[in-house]
Nucleic acid binder design. Structure first.
Lengths: 350, 350
DNA sequence: TTGAAAGCGATACCAC
DNA sequence: GTGGTATCGCTTTCAA
């Protein structure tokens, strides 16, 4: 019931605490023996006693003394968002293999909470941070950098020196979605977006506009910007589609999954059908995209790569081996045209 | 760049470390003043210096000394599963309001990893654990209990004394789903499940069998058990439905979202339609359930309640105020028959 | 190979 | 109200 310390183990095994510390921290050499300056017999005894007594190292003490914790923190803006959840999962896997423990936390798009979380994490002596910054995160994250905590930004960019960055090229994603529709023969292509103003969205908008202009469709550019996740936003979407039919719109780009859901709902309510009445290019992943026939084209981000690259970068940063050009990783999104369930997804570049 | 300690603040403010500690831990009283035995002027000076120097408390040190960390750990079996992600989000919200920081981790259904995580968390001096145990978790969790770490089990049950438990009544959920279909006039009702053998699934199977027997349909009970998330499992599902048509089956209960997805896929492949060819009752939540017309009946678990109740129970456990009957919380699942998007979901009890 | 002893940065107890 | 100081459990010299 009460805590077993290194001293208890030392006393019971008849050795010094130093020895116990050595043994407990030794890693297995390739020859299956502990690579530490301890007599194998002694080591074995220590191990046995530690196990018998149920000893567990107190990380707080260890990390207080050593300044290392062998753990990193990942702070996303919403852990319940499958997009982030999947990144977290991959990240955790990679980090685990590298011997790091990952602590997750969710800022819920709340800068105060984010600040609190950063403080807590830094207080835990985590060796680095991977953060999907919410609005207003600059202050807290700059401070983290300033006290020497390596920090990698994912998904959204914010201004600031010293951050590592693993970002998806959202301008390219927007261009790709638009070009695909143009290639399909559509001209009256519109986009529904949020008023939010985060880089991931504004970049997609930019890509859309660019591609339209390049195709000589500048005058047909139409971006509807609705509120972020409110009931009004859902209703607003219905109105957009009601008018769209009158306007003769042919296709829509829905730059987030939620926007796609609002749109499906609108079609349902208005009695429209895909692809008879409109063509869509959606973003992210949804059961619906895959199950519709034909499959709804959707742009997916390389979640696995985001997890992997961000951890690798952070590790380099921690070990102070990151060159200036290592510090920005740009990834490409992919347009998926097929692949419901078992079938291989068909990827396309436009 | 280098770390600012409590001593630096004390020296700079011309007071003792004790004073600084008092001030840094003081909470705001309702009168907007710090409720600690410190001269307000002194306190203000300390606060100012702390801010100017960029002081942050070192949690490792604080928790080493006090044995408290004001943080809890939540370990789920798969953080990328929306079911768990949503629970985590709710949990975090409640805990945050109660002044606790939550650390999330994912065991990836791997008992070794779970053990490692429990050790790390305990090492961080977390004050309690909320765990969705994977298979083989008994050992690690019993040890946690034995060293006095309050632990609450969610989603799945495992044997063992001392755990708090917040579980959904899955037998009831199975009964509810079955009764609904019977009430709709179906008799040839089947279930597709996994070979897995975790309580959440076996209880749903049990509920199904019970309800069928009660309705005098004992001879029609048919449970197909497929492999867990393999390509073979998906294909197997197709065969099940091919045969089902010949057999004259009328309805299916799909006790997880993934099983529902396999089934939708099978219908697609075979050219069957809902509800023309079969009727479904699914589990969990999916964009598809809501968007189909009519909405596909599905059984949902009270995710918010699971988060809330498990934290509350853990807090009681930590404060040693949990009576024996507090330690088991049983929640009911709900059958949702309508409510795509904005509309209020229609709940039914059968 | 082994051990003694000096801290890491807070808190908590006790004096003043 | 304020300050001195003994820990918390571990890692890490440094000597033996």
């Amino acid at each position: 019931m009460k805590k077993v310390t290194i001293r208890d183990v030392a006393r019971e095994a008849g050795v010094s605490v130093t020895l116990v510390s050595f043994v407990m921290n030794a890693k297995m050499g390739k020859d299956g023996r502990l690579d530490c300056p301890v007599n194998p017999g002694t080591a074995a005894r220590v191990l046995e006693v530690a196990k018998r007594l149920g000893y567990r190292r107190n990380n707080a003490a260890a990390s207080l003394r050593s300044g290392k914790s062998h753990s990193i923190a990942v702070i996303v803006s919403d852990i319940a968002n499958p997009f982030f959840a999947e990144i977290c999962r991959n990240l955790e896997n990679i980090a685990y293999k590298a011997g790091y423990t990952v602590i997750f936390a969710s800022s819920e798009e709340n800068p105060t909470k984010l600040e609190h979380l950063v403080d807590t994490m830094v207080g835990f002596n985590v060796e680095g941070l991977i953060v999907a910054p919410c609005l207003g995160a600059e202050g807290a994250l700059s401070r983290a950098i300033n006290v020497g905590i390596p920090t990698v930004l994912i998904d959204r960019d914010i201004p600031g020196e010293g951050f590592g960055r693993v970002l998806v090229d959202n301008v390219d994603a927007g261009i790709m979605a638009t070009k695909y529709l143009i290639h399909q023969g559509f001209g009256k292509i519109e986009m529904i977006s949020y008023k939010l103003g985060v880089t991931s969205l504004t970049d997609r908008e930019l890509g859309y506009s660019k591609a339209m202009e390049e195709a000589g469709l500048k005058d047909d550019v139409m971006i509807h910007r609705i509120d972020y996740e409110t009931e009004a936003a859902r209703k607003c979407t219905i109105e957009i589609f009601r008018d769209a039919a009158k306007r003769g719109s042919e296709a829509f780009i829905l730059p987030t999954k939620k926007l796609a859901m609002y749109s499906f709902n609108a079609l349902n309510v208005l009695g429209f059908n895909l692809p008879k009445d409109f063509s869509f290019v959606c973003f992210d992943e949804s059961d619906i995209y895959d199950l519709k026939k034909p499959v709804i084209p959707h742009v997916v981000q390389p979640l696995e790569e985001i997890g992997e690259k961000s951890f690798n970068l952070l590790q380099k940063l921690i070990e102070e081996q990151a060159s200036q050009e290592d510090k920005v990783v740009s990834l490409k999104a992919k347009l998926v045209l097929g692949g419901h369930f078992g079938a291989e997804p068909i990827e396309a570049s436009f």
